[in-house]
Simulated assay, not measured.
Amino acid sequence: MKLVSWNVQWGRDAGGRVDLDRTLKAARRLADFDVICMQEITRGFGVLPGGPGPDQFAEIAQALPGYTVLDAIGADLPSLDGSPSRRQFGNAIATRLPVSLVLRHSLPWPADASAPSMQRVALEAVVETSSGPLRILVTHLEFYSLQQRLAQVDELRRLQLEAADHAAHPAAAENATGPFAPTSRPVSAVVCGDFNSRFDSEAYRRFIAPLAGAPGFIDAWTTLHPGQTPPLTAGVYDTKQWSDGPITCDFVFVTEDLRARLRSCEIDGATQASDHQPIVLELD
Protein backbone atom coordinates (compact mmCIF):
# COMPACT_ATOMS: atom_id res chain seq x y z
CA MET A 1 0.00 0.00 0.00
CA LYS A 2 1.35 3.40 -1.00
CA LEU A 3 0.19 6.55 0.77
CA VAL A 4 0.99 10.21 0.15
CA SER A 5 0.52 12.82 2.87
CA TRP A 6 0.72 16.45 1.79
CA ASN A 7 -0.33 19.88 2.97
CA VAL A 8 -1.18 21.15 -0.51
CA GLN A 9 -2.18 24.69 0.57
CA TRP A 10 -5.32 24.57 -1.65
CA GLY A 11 -3.08 23.87 -4.67
CA ARG A 12 -0.99 27.01 -4.18
CA ASP A 13 2.64 26.57 -5.16
CA ALA A 14 5.71 28.21 -3.65
CA GLY A 15 5.34 31.08 -6.11
CA GLY A 16 1.72 31.78 -5.17
CA ARG A 17 -0.09 30.26 -8.19
CA VAL A 18 -3.10 28.02 -7.48
CA ASP A 19 -3.64 24.91 -9.61
CA LEU A 20 -4.89 21.93 -7.62
CA ASP A 21 -4.95 19.66 -10.68
CA ARG A 22 -1.24 20.35 -11.21
CA THR A 23 -0.61 19.50 -7.55
CA LEU A 24 -2.39 16.16 -7.90
CA LYS A 25 -0.38 15.37 -11.02
CA ALA A 26 2.78 16.09 -9.04
CA ALA A 27 1.60 13.62 -6.40
CA ARG A 28 0.94 10.98 -9.07
CA ARG A 29 4.50 11.42 -10.34
CA LEU A 30 5.80 10.72 -6.85
CA ALA A 31 3.88 7.47 -6.44
CA ASP A 32 1.07 5.38 -7.85
CA PHE A 33 -0.69 5.93 -4.56
CA ASP A 34 -3.54 3.90 -3.12
CA VAL A 35 -4.30 6.69 -0.63
CA ILE A 36 -3.59 10.40 -0.62
CA CYS A 37 -4.17 12.45 2.52
CA MET A 38 -4.35 16.20 1.97
CA GLN A 39 -4.57 19.17 4.26
CA GLU A 40 -5.84 22.70 3.48
CA ILE A 41 -8.55 21.78 0.99
CA THR A 42 -11.28 24.39 0.57
CA ARG A 43 -14.89 24.86 -0.48
CA GLY A 44 -16.29 28.35 -1.02
CA PHE A 45 -13.01 30.01 -0.01
CA GLY A 46 -12.16 31.83 -3.22
CA VAL A 47 -10.91 34.82 -1.23
CA LEU A 48 -7.78 32.94 -0.21
CA PRO A 49 -4.53 33.95 -1.98
CA GLY A 50 -4.46 32.70 -5.54
CA GLY A 51 -8.24 32.23 -5.72
CA PRO A 52 -8.99 28.51 -5.24
CA GLY A 53 -12.05 27.12 -7.04
CA PRO A 54 -15.49 26.88 -5.45
CA ASP A 55 -15.27 23.19 -4.45
CA GLN A 56 -11.87 21.58 -4.30
CA PHE A 57 -13.24 18.27 -3.01
CA ALA A 58 -15.15 18.00 -6.29
CA GLU A 59 -11.97 18.93 -8.17
CA ILE A 60 -10.16 16.04 -6.49
CA ALA A 61 -12.92 13.60 -7.45
CA GLN A 62 -12.76 14.76 -11.06
CA ALA A 63 -8.96 14.49 -11.18
CA LEU A 64 -8.87 11.02 -9.55
CA PRO A 65 -11.53 8.83 -11.21
CA GLY A 66 -11.92 5.53 -9.43
CA TYR A 67 -11.01 7.02 -6.06
CA THR A 68 -13.40 7.59 -3.17
CA VAL A 69 -13.01 11.20 -1.97
CA LEU A 70 -13.78 11.94 1.69
CA ASP A 71 -13.91 15.34 3.34
CA ALA A 72 -13.75 16.72 6.86
CA ILE A 73 -14.30 20.41 7.52
CA GLY A 74 -12.56 22.20 10.35
CA ALA A 75 -13.30 25.89 9.85
CA ASP A 76 -16.88 26.40 8.59
CA LEU A 77 -17.68 30.10 8.24
CA PRO A 78 -20.37 32.25 6.61
CA SER A 79 -19.86 33.78 3.20
CA LEU A 80 -18.56 37.33 2.91
CA ASP A 81 -21.28 38.43 0.47
CA GLY A 82 -24.36 37.41 2.47
CA SER A 83 -25.11 34.38 0.31
CA PRO A 84 -26.11 31.06 1.95
CA SER A 85 -22.87 29.39 0.81
CA ARG A 86 -20.19 28.64 3.41
CA ARG A 87 -16.44 29.12 3.55
CA GLN A 88 -15.02 25.71 4.48
CA PHE A 89 -11.45 24.64 5.16
CA GLY A 90 -10.33 21.13 6.03
CA ASN A 91 -8.79 17.81 5.09
CA ALA A 92 -9.38 15.19 2.40
CA ILE A 93 -8.65 11.54 1.82
CA ALA A 94 -8.83 10.03 -1.66
CA THR A 95 -8.42 6.27 -1.92
CA ARG A 96 -8.96 3.50 -4.42
CA LEU A 97 -9.18 0.95 -1.59
CA PRO A 98 -12.60 -0.11 -0.28
CA VAL A 99 -13.74 2.11 2.60
CA SER A 100 -15.84 0.42 5.29
CA LEU A 101 -16.19 3.25 7.82
CA VAL A 102 -15.64 7.01 7.93
CA LEU A 103 -15.37 9.08 11.10
CA ARG A 104 -14.91 12.83 11.46
CA HIS A 105 -13.41 14.01 14.73
CA SER A 106 -13.59 17.66 15.79
CA LEU A 107 -10.42 18.25 17.78
CA PRO A 108 -10.31 20.22 21.05
CA TRP A 109 -10.24 23.99 20.76
CA PRO A 110 -9.55 25.33 24.28
CA ALA A 111 -9.69 29.09 24.66
CA ASP A 112 -6.37 30.85 24.12
CA ALA A 113 -6.72 34.62 23.93
CA SER A 114 -3.02 35.01 23.13
CA ALA A 115 -3.25 33.54 19.61
CA PRO A 116 -5.50 33.44 16.53
CA SER A 117 -6.78 29.94 15.83
CA MET A 118 -9.36 27.88 13.97
CA GLN A 119 -11.34 24.72 14.60
CA ARG A 120 -9.28 21.67 13.65
CA VAL A 121 -10.42 18.21 12.60
CA ALA A 122 -9.16 14.68 12.04
CA LEU A 123 -10.62 12.60 9.22
CA GLU A 124 -10.58 8.82 9.77
CA ALA A 125 -11.25 6.16 7.16
CA VAL A 126 -11.13 2.41 7.69
CA VAL A 127 -9.81 0.94 4.44
CA GLU A 128 -9.66 -2.69 3.43
CA THR A 129 -6.16 -3.79 2.44
CA SER A 130 -4.83 -7.18 1.37
CA SER A 131 -3.49 -7.56 4.93
CA GLY A 132 -6.78 -6.63 6.58
CA PRO A 133 -8.50 -3.42 7.68
CA LEU A 134 -6.43 -0.34 8.49
CA ARG A 135 -7.36 3.03 9.95
CA ILE A 136 -6.08 6.06 8.04
CA LEU A 137 -6.27 9.41 9.83
CA VAL A 138 -5.28 12.78 8.39
CA THR A 139 -5.11 15.89 10.49
CA HIS A 140 -3.80 19.45 10.63
CA LEU A 141 -3.09 20.80 14.10
CA GLU A 142 -3.24 24.40 15.30
CA PHE A 143 -0.36 26.61 14.18
CA TYR A 144 -0.25 29.49 16.67
CA SER A 145 -1.32 28.00 20.01
CA LEU A 146 0.83 25.40 21.76
CA GLN A 147 -1.94 24.93 24.32
CA GLN A 148 -4.36 23.92 21.58
CA ARG A 149 -1.82 21.73 19.76
CA LEU A 150 -1.11 19.76 22.91
CA ALA A 151 -4.85 19.29 23.56
CA GLN A 152 -5.26 18.05 19.99
CA VAL A 153 -2.36 15.61 20.37
CA ASP A 154 -3.97 14.26 23.53
CA GLU A 155 -7.25 13.76 21.66
CA LEU A 156 -5.57 11.84 18.84
CA ARG A 157 -4.01 9.55 21.43
CA ARG A 158 -7.40 9.13 23.12
CA LEU A 159 -8.91 8.14 19.77
CA GLN A 160 -6.32 5.38 19.49
CA LEU A 161 -7.40 4.05 22.89
CA GLU A 162 -11.04 4.29 21.79
CA ALA A 163 -10.31 2.30 18.64
CA ALA A 164 -8.53 -0.37 20.67
CA ASP A 165 -11.56 -0.58 22.96
CA HIS A 166 -13.87 -0.95 19.96
CA ALA A 167 -11.59 -3.67 18.59
CA ALA A 168 -11.74 -5.54 21.89
CA HIS A 169 -15.49 -5.02 22.48
CA PRO A 170 -17.23 -4.75 19.09
CA ALA A 171 -20.99 -4.40 18.81
CA ALA A 172 -22.94 -5.97 15.99
CA ALA A 173 -25.05 -3.97 13.54
CA GLU A 174 -28.70 -3.44 14.41
CA ASN A 175 -29.63 -4.68 10.92
CA ALA A 176 -28.20 -4.77 7.43
CA THR A 177 -29.76 -1.53 6.20
CA GLY A 178 -29.85 0.95 9.10
CA PRO A 179 -27.26 3.42 10.35
CA PHE A 180 -26.27 1.28 13.36
CA ALA A 181 -23.24 -0.30 11.73
CA PRO A 182 -20.78 -2.70 13.42
CA THR A 183 -18.56 -0.77 15.84
CA SER A 184 -15.38 -2.79 15.38
CA ARG A 185 -12.36 -0.70 14.37
CA PRO A 186 -8.86 -2.02 13.71
CA VAL A 187 -6.14 -1.10 16.18
CA SER A 188 -3.58 -0.66 13.39
CA ALA A 189 -3.47 2.91 12.12
CA VAL A 190 -1.60 5.47 10.06
CA VAL A 191 -1.86 9.05 11.35
CA CYS A 192 -0.44 11.71 9.08
CA GLY A 193 -0.55 15.38 8.27
CA ASP A 194 0.75 18.79 9.18
CA PHE A 195 1.25 18.72 12.94
CA ASN A 196 2.53 22.32 13.06
CA SER A 197 4.97 20.93 15.62
CA ARG A 198 8.68 20.89 15.04
CA PHE A 199 10.51 17.60 15.01
CA ASP A 200 11.35 16.57 18.59
CA SER A 201 9.18 19.35 20.04
CA GLU A 202 7.01 18.89 23.12
CA ALA A 203 3.95 18.04 21.02
CA TYR A 204 5.93 15.60 18.85
CA ARG A 205 7.39 13.79 21.85
CA ARG A 206 4.00 13.63 23.56
CA PHE A 207 2.38 12.06 20.51
CA ILE A 208 4.89 9.20 20.28
CA ALA A 209 4.97 8.52 24.03
CA PRO A 210 3.86 4.95 24.89
CA LEU A 211 0.16 4.26 25.34
CA ALA A 212 -1.21 2.01 28.07
CA GLY A 213 -3.76 -0.36 26.58
CA ALA A 214 -3.08 0.08 22.86
CA PRO A 215 -0.20 0.11 20.40
CA GLY A 216 1.38 3.56 20.45
CA PHE A 217 2.73 5.54 17.53
CA ILE A 218 6.16 5.58 15.92
CA ASP A 219 7.50 8.02 13.35
CA ALA A 220 7.72 6.08 10.09
CA TRP A 221 10.57 8.20 8.69
CA THR A 222 12.84 8.05 11.74
CA THR A 223 12.11 4.34 12.18
CA LEU A 224 13.42 3.66 8.68
CA HIS A 225 16.27 6.19 8.97
CA PRO A 226 17.59 5.53 12.51
CA GLY A 227 19.82 8.18 14.00
CA GLN A 228 18.97 10.73 11.30
CA THR A 229 17.03 14.01 11.48
CA PRO A 230 14.18 14.20 8.96
CA PRO A 231 14.44 16.69 6.10
CA LEU A 232 12.72 20.06 6.26
CA THR A 233 9.07 19.94 5.19
CA ALA A 234 7.73 23.52 5.29
CA GLY A 235 9.13 26.78 3.95
CA VAL A 236 11.84 25.15 1.87
CA TYR A 237 10.97 27.18 -1.24
CA ASP A 238 8.30 29.62 -0.04
CA THR A 239 10.54 31.90 1.98
CA LYS A 240 8.00 34.73 1.94
CA GLN A 241 5.43 32.92 4.08
CA TRP A 242 8.16 31.23 6.12
CA SER A 243 10.36 34.26 6.71
CA ASP A 244 11.76 32.78 9.93
CA GLY A 245 13.15 29.84 7.98
CA PRO A 246 12.02 26.33 7.06
CA ILE A 247 11.01 23.71 9.63
CA THR A 248 10.10 20.04 9.82
CA CYS A 249 6.46 19.75 10.91
CA ASP A 250 4.85 17.18 8.58
CA PHE A 251 4.90 13.55 9.68
CA VAL A 252 3.56 10.08 9.01
CA PHE A 253 3.12 8.04 12.17
CA VAL A 254 2.10 4.38 12.29
CA THR A 255 1.09 2.21 15.20
CA GLU A 256 3.86 0.11 16.71
CA ASP A 257 2.34 -3.13 15.40
CA LEU A 258 2.98 -1.94 11.83
CA ARG A 259 6.74 -1.55 12.34
CA ALA A 260 7.57 -4.78 10.51
CA ARG A 261 5.41 -3.77 7.55
CA LEU A 262 7.25 -0.48 6.91
CA ARG A 263 8.95 -0.70 3.54
CA SER A 264 9.80 2.94 2.83
CA CYS A 265 9.01 6.48 3.93
CA GLU A 266 10.53 9.37 2.03
CA ILE A 267 10.09 13.14 2.05
CA ASP A 268 10.25 14.67 -1.42
CA GLY A 269 12.45 17.75 -1.31
CA ALA A 270 12.22 18.72 -4.98
CA THR A 271 8.63 19.72 -5.69
CA GLN A 272 7.61 23.37 -5.34
CA ALA A 273 3.90 22.69 -5.83
CA SER A 274 3.13 23.76 -2.24
CA ASP A 275 4.77 25.52 0.67
CA HIS A 276 5.08 22.03 2.22
CA GLN A 277 6.89 18.93 0.97
CA PRO A 278 4.98 15.65 0.48
CA ILE A 279 5.72 12.39 2.30
CA VAL A 280 5.41 9.01 0.57
CA LEU A 281 4.85 5.91 2.72
CA GLU A 282 4.89 2.31 1.53
CA LEU A 283 3.64 -0.60 3.67
CA ASP A 284 3.96 -4.31 2.89
Rank of each mutant, 00 (worst) to 15 (best):
N7E: 02
A14C: 07
A14G: 07
R17F: 13
R17H: 08
R17T: 15
D19G: 03
L20Q: 06
L24Q: 10
L24N: 07
K25M: 06
A27M: 13
D32I: 09
Q39W: 04
G44R: 02
F45Q: 07
G51A: 12
G51R: 14
P52N: 05
P52M: 07
P52A: 04
P54N: 05
P54F: 09
F57T: 08
Q62Y: 06
Q62A: 15
Q62L: 13
A63W: 06
Y67L: 09
T68E: 15
V69S: 04
L70M: 15
A72Q: 00
I73L: 07
P84E: 10
S85C: 03
R86I: 07
R86N: 01
F89R: 02
G90Y: 04
I93R: 00
P98G: 04
P98R: 00
S100H: 03
R104Q: 10
H105W: 10
L107H: 04
L107G: 02
W109M: 15
A111G: 02
A111V: 14
D112W: 10
P116I: 02
P116M: 11
S117A: 14
M118P: 00
L123N: 05
E124C: 09
A125E: 05
A125D: 10
V126D: 13
V126H: 11
V127D: 09
E128P: 03
S131V: 09
L134M: 10
R135P: 09
V138E: 02
H140E: 07
L141D: 02
L146Q: 14
L146R: 11
Q148W: 00
R149S: 02
D154L: 06
D154Y: 05
E155Q: 14
L156G: 03
L156A: 09
R157D: 00
R158L: 13
L161P: 09
A163E: 03
A164K: 06
A164V: 05
P170Y: 02
A171N: 08
A173W: 06
E174H: 08
A176I: 04
T177L: 13
S184E: 15
R185V: 03
P186A: 03
V190A: 02
V191P: 00
R198H: 12
F199D: 03
S201G: 08
E202C: 02
E202V: 15
E202H: 11
A203D: 12
Y204Q: 11
Y204K: 12
I208H: 05
I208K: 03
A209E: 15
P210S: 13
A212V: 14
D219K: 07
T223Q: 14
T223S: 12
L224P: 05
P226T: 01
G227E: 05
Q228E: 13
Q228P: 00
A234E: 12
G235L: 06
V236R: 08
D244Y: 08
D244I: 05
G245C: 10
T248H: 15
T248E: 04
V252P: 00
V254G: 12
D257T: 10
D257H: 10
R259A: 15
C265T: 01
C265S: 07
I267K: 00
G269K: 07
A270W: 01
D275Q: 13
P278K: 04
I279G: 05
I279W: 08
V280K: 00
L281V: 12
